[in-house]
Design a protein around this nucleic acid. Structure first.
Length: 219
DNA sequence: CGCCAGGGCCATA
DNA sequence: TATGGCCATGGC
């Protein structure tokens, strides 16, 4: 079922080429800044770096100065601390993407979760979109998506993640685009119908439907 | 003007 | 383990 739904979403939106960033480190920064924050605000913050988003700079920069740069992204007092912390973690691997990629997924995931400001979603976003690890990213949209369409994937983050990983081929390209498709589909939907969030769960609210044979389709 | 966005931390029970 | 308050800007 999950694969059929993916195909429907793919037919509509195609390959979205996530994450929108110019480097793995920029993915790390973006994933942290976008916590409970509109992406357009994150873009303003990223623009304030003036094309100079490197771990070396974030490591050396004064904390108060960093706060000013990321201010548009909101929660800047804590996020500035978070950026320092995740950058310090990255330094263990000499800011080298390949040294991180050479490690086992589970090890890096645990390390990331131990970093201040990195929870499940941020960790998985970084693992998948910065370092190409085959891990599935769950967010509020995904959980709402499952609830709305009767996909019984559990109730918390890990149960959803386990459900998707258990019912899909472990393919980083698939995981990458699937999460992106769910987000884009949700945003499109919300844009067209701002009150969708308030729809009762039994409402088929959304573009996804199921035919008489139980096959999913996008209307 | 009020609502809320691609979460996570912490205190409390 | 499970809620709830808190963090903060900018777009609509």
């Amino acid at each position: 079922m999950l694969m059929e739904i993916y195909n429907q979403l793919f037919n509509r939106y195609g390959d979205l080429n996530w994450w929108p960033a110019e480097s793995p480190y920029e993915v790390i920064i973006g994933a942290t800044l976008t916590q409970n924050t509109n992406w357009s605000n994150v873009e303003l913050a990223l623009a304030n770096f003036k094309k100079n988003i490197t771990p070396y700079r974030v490591k050396e920069i004064d904390l108060e100065e960093l706060k000013e740069i990321i201010r548009p992204a909101g929660f800047y007092n804590q996020k500035a601390v978070y950026l320092k912390a995740i950058t310090k973690w990255y330094e263990r691997y000499d800011f080298d993407v390949n040294k991180v990629k050479a490690q086992p997924l589970d090890r890096i995931r645990k390390e990331l979760l131990a970093v201040r400001g990195v929870g499940n979603e941020t960790a998985d976003s970084i693992l998948l979109y910065a370092f190409d690890f085959p891990t599935f990213v769950i967010d509020k949209y995904t959980q709402r998506f499952c609830q709305r369409y009767g996909i019984e994937a559990g109730k918390d983050y890990m149960s959803h993640k386990n459900y998707f990983e258990a019912n899909l081929l472990s393919d980083r390209a698939l995981f990458n685009n699937y999460h992106a498709l769910i987000v884009i589909n949700a945003k499109n939907h919300c844009k067209a119908k701002p009150t969708c969030r308030d729809c009762p769960l039994e409402d088929t609210c959304g573009q996804l439907g199921f035919d008489d044979n139980g096959k999913p389709f996008l209307s």
